[in-house]
Amino acid sequence: MTNILEVQNLAKNYGDFQAVKGVSFNIEEGEIFSLLGPNGAGKTTTISMLSTLYTPTSGEAVIGGHSVTKDPMAVRGVIGVVPQDLALYEDLTARENLIFWGQMYNLSGKSLNMRVDEVLEQIGLTDKAKNRVKTFSGGMKRRVNIGVGLLHKPRLLFMDEPTVGIDPQSRRAILDTVKDLNKQGMTLLYTTHYMEEAEELSNRVGIIDHGELIALGTQKELTQQVGQAETLILHIGENDDSEALAKSLKGIQGVQQAEAVDHEVSIVCAEAEDVLAAVVTKANERGIKIRSIDIREPNLEAVFLHLTGRALRD
């Protein structure tokens, strides 16, 4: 497989603040690569540099054989971008939006009209094509937002957290669209802070935190980094002190990590069965009522917790 994207020590500083600290990775043609990290990790800044919107402070990226710093116009012809926030003209109809953006990607005439029809079909808005975008639901707007990025059939599509703030049904539709696009041969760089999305979609995942790429590989490769560890999730009452419980659980033999997130406590351990009784006892001693317990196989959440000492949603 050839690399469609090669990133070398890419960095972006804003004054003294280092938003991205020299990340390096490649994306092979035909794969879905996810950048997974919490809000503010540097995902959007990385995509903004790769899409030629921001100039890197240092480092280089080559997309489809073109340098993002030396030949940005050529790069823009190769990539498609679906930004995190909606970037549409709400007073134009869905069709008018797609026509306009298609023209900006050098499409015209019959081929433009045909392509707009195809994309409308693909995003399931053919019957709403003549409605103004401002009359659409959030999910429908998201679909048009994605449709704009598909118009010129880019070889590499950047999708920056496309499911933020939408209903589960629309989220499901978007994830299915991503998989369909990949089946059709499109390469995707997908950023998210939802571990489940990265797990469902990606061939490979890069975990980014505080501007650094702290792990990179397939899901299997990443979970192996935390050994055979399992994760216990304790769901406790709203008025109970999850922070204090997490602290007390760290002293239990066999517990590798314990972190509180809202009304949950995540416990990473080699074998859940070995620590379960001690965990319940500790909770009882503190007068904390456990509502339910989940036992999860090693996953990206556990990897992130293992690498950073924090939960992904912190």
Partner: peptide, 14 residues
Amino acid sequence: TQGTLPRLLVSPTS
């Protein structure tokens, strides 16, 4: 503010 200008800037438009 509404993001259409950045989107224009990442299209092949100077």
